[in-house]
Design a protein around this nucleic acid. Structure first.
Lengths: 224, 224
DNA sequence: GGTGTGCACGTTGTATACACACTGCACACG
DNA sequence: CGTGTGCAGTGTGTATACAACGTGCACACC
């Protein structure tokens, strides 16, 4: 299924070095849920299953630590990070802060919606109709990402992107397994775009607020 | 001088492992300016000067890359990152977004200024009077940090902290070498605190805006 | 004289070997 | 029977050895 299609900001298009292979393999396994939360990862075992030595695996684990996939306990190793409901709520609160800033700036500069957003929304509706929730979720990410890229500066956009691996797994679950909020999501997206076109920051932010508040509440229901 | 007093959030109090030593040594050297911007760092050379083998040095470099101290060019090595005036401005814009969110939330919840802030400001004024600009700069960091810790959630506070190494060097230079804005800085800090105590978000944010806008303009003057 | 090719050197990327710390269990002692 | 200590096993932390790639210079050829 390959969820983390593009690399989390940093080294452009890195060659398929062993270290990169290890990073992709392990991160994907964590996202897919191969390793349980709280589980300790064995470097030698990972090395075997990835097909390299321990060195690239260690580098991958350090990177995964920087991206909050795992915790690093000295002399114990890497532990798959447990994401609490509280943290998930904080992540969405943070998203709200960053995306609001982006929307506000877009409106203040009267720039309208980002290019290509129409296509993204159309694709989303198609995926929704086909009940292809993985694609739906990825396009949702793309929509929000494009808002931030359009409105925020590079530095802020990088911070936003760093947030993604921290909630993507549960986000997919929510969309996939939850009560199908498809219509709500699509409507709110379109309302945000409309507000941007009208340079109406207040409305855009308000809809976004509502949009981003709903999700962690749903998630809370799931995590029990 | 030891600028990066506390560790950039993550592994609590890690034992003085070789890897940590390497990280501290190299990051400090970069902050102090031992290595020129754009310079490539030689792993073997660093290993010799740190007193370890290449392995811990490599891990340190990866971490420094994650924190944007260096760029990692495949097959070429680690390059001390060049911080442009544009990026510096973006960093301050980002700080403004995060700190504003923190101030707003503090006011909305009518919590007043963070505990200990009075002491920090007093220490700052003392350092300012003694023309100890390094201490002054560090306390300035602490002041802003405490605002964010007080108002923002853990996740957002972590993002904020990740920003610090990216501007701390120039920030120190600006305070140290610039026209002494001491009174201005101290006054604005006190105005922000007063606004917090009065639960007046609008004023707090407005003063902060002015406070954070001034710095990158000064920096721009320096970088030429 | 300019340009292209080939070789030698240096550096990164990876593998492997070794040292040391931690964990858990077993056994002895109170 | 409970508790503390010792020991073996396992896995991380570090060092070192090797391989592969990229760079720059020199020399030859056009």
């Amino acid at each position: 299924m390959s969820m983390p299609a593009d690399e989390p900001a940093g080294d452009a298009q890195d060659s398929p070095s062993a270290s990169t292979i290890a990073y992709r393999t392990i991160s994907e396994a964590i996202l897919v849920g191969t390793y349980a939360e709280g589980q300790f990862l064995d470097e030698s075992g990972l090395a075997r299953s990835v097909g390299t030595s321990r060195t690239p695996v260690r580098e991958a684990l350090r990177r995964l630590h920087a991206e909050r996939y795992v915790d690093l306990v000295p002399r114990r190793g890497a532990q798959v990070r447990v994401i609490t409901a509280t943290e998930m709520q904080e992540i969405y609160e943070t998203r709200l802060v960053i995306e609001s800033a982006a929307l506000t700036k877009i409106c203040r500069q009267r720039r309208g919606a980002p290019a290509g957003v129409e296509q993204t929304l159309a694709d989303m509706e198609e995926a929704g109709a086909a009940q292809d929730w993985f694609t739906f979720a990825r396009l949702d990410q793309r929509f929000h990402q494009s808002l931030v890229e359009h409105g925020a500066n590079r530095v802020l956009a990088d911070l936003y992107q760093a947030l993604r691996p921290r909630h993507i797994r549960l986000a997919v679950r929510t969309i996939t397994e939850g009560p199908h909020r498809r219509e709500t999501i699509e409507r709110e997206h379109r309302e945000i775009v409309a507000a941007l076109e009208a340079h109406d920051a207040a409305t855009a932010v308000q809809v976004l607020n509502q949009h981003l508040t709903a999700v962690p509440e749903l998630m809370r229901a799931f995590s029990h």
